[in-house]
Design a protein around this nucleic acid. Structure first.
Lengths: 217, 217
DNA sequence: CAAGAATTCAAACGATCGTATGATTCAAAC
DNA sequence: GTTTGAATCATACGATCGTTTGAATTCTTG
């Protein structure tokens, strides 16, 4: 029961952080859920902040490695079309449930919310974990969309990150429109089939004319 | 100097909440920035939670009224095409800076982050402020995209909310891809010219085939 | 100007937080 | 079986939090 404690803390913290946020989750709540002593967090991780970083590093590293592996496989096969690139980027964040890691679903929710919300040094830390992957995908998209100006591509990548982060965050926004909730979010394949056409069409959208008609009176 | 205090508190709280989040912003920091006494918050608003709600109500109500007014004007003119509907929904959240209300920019950032991140009762409260507006725009989009199945429209509205919220949140995601930051986010007209074609193309995207090719080995 | 309501103020309360401490338990090495 | 270092434990510290209180002040109204 040596590094079992570490794992139990990571598991409990991940769940509570995803549900209540970082600052509203106390170390006491984490250690109580994990069934370990309060001091175990500072013993194994050093501080609450270091625990948060450990959570992101553990989950994000394999996901990003899979992203790069998928992208490289596409390049080898010569079929790096836009839809395939998008799938290589998004699928590793969605297919986790069937891989018997239910905790990863909670983590993606946590990651999405952190992306949109975190203002402090944590976002910079997460960005650091992303840097290599995003540079590779940016280059792939430049080649897949050669006619798109670089600045426009950057904006559309910003929009893309918005869609992906928001979907990962899993806020049940759909019931804003009607009474229907997200239908069985467990069906990740169906989600991919809806996300990728939406994003591909947005990335391929024709450029807006330089001048726009005036707004309403 | 009676309800000037109320206003100073709202202003300071809005700025600090947008920068550091709700739970990491103390009432002492708010009242210090506002130059008022600590007890003034509980005297004028009742509690920290009620202060947060007051912030959202104050800003969101006029924005949503303008959204509905723009949409109704489109209907009267018979030009409720997709792009115009999107502009009616998005423009009121972006044009605020030139209206001499710099605080509204900070608020939209706060709103975007709350949309993606808040898990507690606050999100339900904000959703309540949105309900009427989103029902109206959903109906307009149903008419503008008659060939799109209702379920698919719901998903794409979810994606749309992701883009809008993420853009409002204003997290400087673009420097993930290169070293360039968001170029002069003050130019709201340019942002509209980029957002609307992206979203319109996504909403109009052809449906994906029911079966997809398998993923990578 | 005086009376009463509205507002502001300094100060404190109880609770909770992250972290640190020193004793205690446990497991492997000799 | 003894020793040694890692791990766990109960406990406490100092800080900060949201909220409350009651007196002091300001404003309104007659």
């Amino acid at each position: 029961m040596q590094d079992d404690t570490r794992e139990r803390i990571l598991e409990a913290a991940e769940a509570l952080f995803a549900e209540h946020g970082f600052s509203r989750t106390s170390l006491r709540a984490i250690t109580a859920r994990a069934g370990v002593n309060l001091a175990a967090v500072n013993y194994h991780f050093g501080s609450k902040h270091a625990l948060i970083q450990a959570i992101f590093t553990r989950r994000l590293e394999p996901i990003n490695q899979e992203r790069l592996a998928r992208l490289e496989a596409l390049r080898r096969q010569g079929r790096a079309d836009l839809e395939a690139i998008l799938e290589a980027f998004i699928a590793p964040t969605l297919k986790s449930e069937k891989d018997h890691h239910p905790g990863e679903v909670r983590f993606m929710r946590l990651l999405g919310r952190t992306h949109a919300g975190a203002a402090d040094a944590l976002r910079d830390f997460v960005h650091g974990l992303y840097a290599e992957v995003l540079a590779a995908f940016e280059q792939a998209l430049v080649e897949a969309l050669p006619e798109l100006p670089r600045l426009e591509l950057h904006w559309r990548l910003h929009f893309l990150m918005g869609v992906v982060s928001f979907t990962m965050a899993g806020t049940d926004t759909m019931r804003l429109f009607t009474d229907c909730h997200l239908p069985e979010a467990g069906d990740r394949e169906a989600l991919l089939r809806r996300l990728i056409p939406f994003l591909a069409a947005g990335l391929r959208a024709p450029l807006a004319p330089t001048e726009r008609r005036p707004s309403l009176p």
